[in-house]
């Protein structure tokens, strides 16, 4: 099992200092996520979900402990090296979509691939747009798209680099129930198709139930780590196609 872990957290803590007072948001979190696993991080507001996600993806530095992402110890990397690692292996879906307002839908999708210096990525971006049902909106700007459409573009962007791991922060949090459901389906469908590891932060238990593992946080601590039966954990021996 150890050899297939894609994300390992070792005694992870995060403390914020404000003046003379300190606030510990995460306390001594240790866990491992394996390649191909779908995992939901749940917990009430302020429990440290988003902080955990930021640390896992190398967006922030832990106060104590370490993070191994795709076999690389993030503590030993500079900001730019962490960014390169993200570009190579990580996809993101955000609650507030985080599309670049000055780029069209297709240009937003192409950004991660273009950052790698890849050429001719437009056709792949178009396939992804087609996969999320927005081919006819390729040249639209985010402000010309509805929330659901923006999130679909966000999902397409997340998969352009065929990431090994996908982090999703409340992906349906800003959407109505119906649109949310469509997005959920799309996310899981693409995830399954690409064989990507999925780490999902949500307070929506229904959404969490759709993953194979639910990690529950409370006051910065992991209070439960439950492998559900809804989705089977893929055979570690099976190599995800890339």
């Amino acid at each position: 099992m150890q050899s297939n872990s894609i994300l390992t957290l070792q005694n992870l803590s995060k403390t914020y200092t404000s003046g003379s007072s300190e606030l510990t948001v995460l306390k001594d979190v240790t866990l491992t996520i394996h390649e191909g696993e779908t995992c939901a991080v749940v917990g009430p507001s302020g429990s440290g979900k988003t902080t955990l996600l930021g640390l896992c993806a190398g967006l922030d530095r832990p106060s104590e402990g370490g993070v191994q992402l795709c076999g690389v110890d993030l503590n030993g990397l500079s900001e730019d090296e962490t960014a390169s690692l993200r570009n190579q292996h990580v996809g993101f879906v955000f609650q507030s979509f985080q599309l670049i307002p000055t780029l069209t839908a297709i240009e937003n999708i192409m950004v991660p691939a273009e950052l790698r210096g890849e050429r001719g990525v437009a056709s792949r971006a178009r396939s992804l747009l087609e996969a999320v049902g927005l081919l006819d909106r390729a040249t639209h700007y985010p402000s010309q798209l509805s929330g659901g459409e923006q999130q679909r573009v966000g999902i397409a962007r997340a998969f352009i680099n065929k990431p090994r791991i996908l982090f999703a922060d409340e992906p349906t949090g800003n959407l109505d129930a119906e649109t949310g459901e469509t997005i959920e389906s799309l996310l899981f469908e693409l995830n399954q198709k690409e064989g990507t590891t999925l780490v999902l932060v949500t307070h929506d238990l229904e959404l969490a139930q759709k993953t194979s593992r639910i990690i529950q946080l409370k006051a910065g601590k992991v209070v439960s780590d439950d492998i559900s039966s809804r989705f089977a954990i893929p055979d570690p021996g099976v190599q995800v196609s890339r």
């Binding site: 960014a83 390169s84 993200r86």
Partner: peptide, 13 residues
Amino acid sequence: ETVAILRCLGARS
């Protein structure tokens, strides 16, 4: 925000 998105998507500083 755009800068943060780019950094998140892997753009170096």
